[in-house]
């Protein structure tokens, strides 16, 4: 005989919100898993009326999109949260912001249709700050002129070969700063893939700090 009780069936969310936040300074070094855990705890600390999943192991219904990679800063990260009530959104933002780890600033909370985020965020504007402008100008010109530029990257399932050109919408250089617009394509081309390609064209790559400035549609930046 089993006394195992059935899991509680939880009510459907009453609304969905999109949270925009930054990850800078120490928080740049958080992985997507770290951030997922951090936000689950933040919604509990801030007493956000988050909707939980049903099942034996209920979790807050939070969906992260395009999390900037470990080590990259970002001024434009987004996630969606399902809510079980309709609170004042500015108060909610403030409450989340107050309990965030250093480097995470919650900048905006807006009501949205579920899943809208993925449809709207189709490209990212990145800034890459190289330690020195050595070879950078030439590398940018070379990459812009190239019909294809493949790089290799280690992934969980082995070595991946990726052509960065199809995703690259814009590429500019000013001194040691490169700005670029990278479309969220499949397979995903990361900003670090583009800087890796630049290094193959001779850019000095010993140190390069990446910051995502915006996300949205490629034409809007």
């Amino acid at each position: 005989m089993s006394r195992r009780e059935p899991p509680v069936r939880r009510p459907d969310p009453v609304m969905w919100v999109r949270v925009r936040y930054t990850k800078t300074g120490p928080a740049s070094y958080a992985s997507n898993r770290d951030l997922a855990r951090a936000f689950e705890r933040m919604v509990r600390r801030a007493q956000v009326p988050v909707a939980y999943s049903s099942g034996f192991s209920p979790h807050p219904r939070i969906s992260h999109y395009n999390v900037a990679p470990t080590g990259a800063a970002s001024l434009a990260e987004y996630l969606e949260v399902a809510l079980a009530a309709a609170p004042d959104l500015e108060q909610l933002r403030e409450a989340l912001h107050t309990v965030a780890p250093v480097g995470v600033a919650v900048t905006e909370v807006v009501a949205i249709q579920r899943g809208a985020t993925a449809k709207e965020l189709t490209a990212s504007l990145w800034r890459a700050e190289f330690s020195a402008p050595i070879g950078l100008e030439a590398a940018v010109q070379a990459l812009l002129a190239a019909p294809a530029a493949t790089i290799t990257r280690e992934s969980g399932s082995g070595i991946k070969t990726i052509d960065v050109v199809p995703a690259l919408r814009e590429l500019r250089v000013d001194g040691n700063i490169v700005t670029m617009v990278v479309a969220h394509t499949e397979p995903l081309v990361r900003a670090s893939d583009v800087t890796a390609a630049l290094s193959r064209y001779g850019a000095d790559w010993s140190s390069c700090r990446l910051t995502r400035l915006e996300q949205g549609s490629a034409t809007a930046f």
């Binding site: 300074g25 992985s31 600390r45 780890p101």
Partner: peptide, 10 residues
């Protein structure tokens, strides 16, 4: 896992 060296935890 550089996050373990940065501090700033709640």
């Amino acid at each position: 896992r550089p996050i373990q060296y940065v501090g700033g935890e709640p």
